[in-house]
Design a protein around this nucleic acid. Structure first.
Lengths: 204, 204, 204, 204
DNA sequence: TATGAATGAGGGTTCATTCAT
DNA sequence: TATGAATGAACCCTCATTCAT
């Protein structure tokens, strides 16, 4: 019954924080900030709602922390993709598979919620503004230009291609995550067709 | 002196109803049923919140009425498309342009909200169940088969193609409707590429 | 299409007022002032709710007018009873039959509502205070004294006898008027037993 | 440091629940379910209205809980009376004293409200249907028959006697509980006279 | 650290009352 | 006189947040 020592407390603290963040990501991503109730997060994390407030000052702060983390992941994903070996198509395919993977999807949805929902705290808006669709686009543009040079990418306006690709991807993920479970996720290789030059389109 | 006559009252009622429905469609479509406050609809319609209840018994009833109307439009749009003259591609392009047009978009979003949101009244769920994505798919499938026969449509699994097309379209519209106004709507002709046979892909 | 002349308007006005008062008595008596909605009175009177306000400035004023009228009737009933021919028992039996008759009952209930309900306008309270149970008691007391002298009435404290008789009567009428329609009205001759000397008790 | 232990929490919960039930009984019994505002109960219990909802899901549920409890008491009271020692008159007098006692009166009024008021939740209606006036009557009838055999009870129709007794009692209690505090409760022994054979009537 | 009792602001809905016609 | 559209105060209920333990 000796009191826990400093390290043990620290360990508990970190573990709890992780629990909460995991739980909150799942709920916020699917429901958006307003429809997410603190009690849902507490239940998902297996703790009392009171305890949430020891780790995060408010719902807004928790949401902001999640958005911040998700943005790092998303930004990193793009960087990582650019370093992926292979052709432009290889890079893009890799990126799409990554972004739509089970683990990344929640972060993507969260960012969508932060972007599209009502009742998002101002600070969260600021964060995603820095990594907005424009930011993605600016990162992808050189890649698209190269793809157009090599003939892999369609010759249309690169901005439109990129925006189309990203919104179609996000949109499909959003719908797939909605309650109607029988809406399938669009296949990354199908998505790719939005931007491929015709001669590179392959059957699935 | 005399009270308003039958026609005048009718005119007022119809006008108000229209005002409310227009206002409510805009708010519901963007925010979903729970985040939509009756006061927002009232403000958008330029009336007091109390007056809403002269025209609709409850928020749920209003939402249901809107969904019902939107479903009529959506269902009709598909039928109309099938009767459109021209090739399979012509029909599809026509459909996409219609569905993504300024007027149709809100209805589409509303249906999305009814499908994907929390707090949707049971009756609204029933209505869209009849015209679910499956229903759309079943209508489009013969067209896709024909397109595959004529070589206009890619030879992949028709179900996947259809689901991909529809979710990409819906998703883009959702994102575009969100508050961040600089997210562009995907171009219908780009969407079409998701399903076209390569040799039919044309630059925008 | 000539405009109505003064007299016709007056006639209409009186008729409408009567309609409203009749309708309102029925509703107020059964439901009490707060649970009575102006729309119920309007419906019962067969007019629009707006028109009510041409005849009575407010719900309170209408209720007060009804209470005033009912109190007159109730007071008159007592006076009339005292002048009724016959023995003390005859007078009392006559009074009970009158008070519990179909026509008088609504007025009685209304007074009960004014006495017992929440949300009764102050002025209505004032009116019935003037004709409160004390007033009734003071009118009945000489009669009871006489009855005790003649041996018709039990020898107990007259105040208690009177209060018991009146509350039992009112109470039975209240329950009878409630929605559960199978609660029978107590028989006036049974009520009488509450106060009769034993040797005057007769089987029903 | 440590959270409250199981027992302490339980104690608080029970105490609060009791507080609320007591407060609610007083208000519901006097005002009926519709005129009772949750804020009144909260004020009477000395807590915030929000806290009410930690203990009872809704106003209806609280009312139903009270009715259920009151019916247990009322039903039990009748059974207990039948086992009371002494003559039929002794039993009845005991019953009347019990039913009109300070503690029992509020329950009686509550049941009256559940029977007679508007806006009573369906479930509450179901509960009292089982113990309706008919149920009381059926329990009392054998006793009255016996009393008529022994000559204690008047020879009139037993159903009418019972109904008269019960409604007079209820009615008096209702009036007595109303705000005008100077309406005295009818004396149980006076009530008894409604049903006694003349030779058993005694001065108070 | 951890719990859950407690509070109160805010949103849906009803209904008395006003007012244009 | 007569109608019903229109307003807004007040009530039920939810849920973010605080706090005693």
């Amino acid at each position: 019954m000796a009191p826990l020592n400093e390290d043990q407390l620290h360990a508990i603290r970190d573990e709890r924080r992780e629990q909460i963040i995991d739980a909150a990501l799942g709920v916020f991503a699917r429901r958006g900030p307003v429809l997410t109730k603190m009690s849902m997060i507490a239940a998902a994390a297996g703790i009392s709602h009171g305890l949430l407030y020891h780790y995060f000052k408010s719902k807004d702060e928790l949401f902001i922390a999640l958005v911040r983390e998700a943005m790092l992941g998303a930004g990193g994903g793009v960087e990582e993709m650019l370093g992926h070996p292979g052709t432009v198509i290889d890079k893009l395919r890799h990126f799409l598979h990554e972004a739509m993977s089970e683990e990344a999807r929640l972060s993507f949805l969260l960012i969508h919620q932060a972007r599209a929902s009502e009742g998002v705290p101002e600070e969260a808006r600021e964060i995603i503004k820095d990594y907005s669709m424009d930011w993605f686009a600016s990162k992808l543009k050189p890649l698209f230009f190269e793809g157009q040079r090599t003939g892999e990418i369609a010759k249309d306006d690169a901005d439109l291609l990129i925006a189309g690709l990203l919104t179609a991807m996000s949109g499909s993920m959003i719908l797939h995550a909605s309650d109607e479970k029988n809406i399938p996720l669009i296949h990354p290789d199908h998505l790719l067709r939005l931007v491929l030059a015709p001669e590179h389109v392959r059957p699935l």
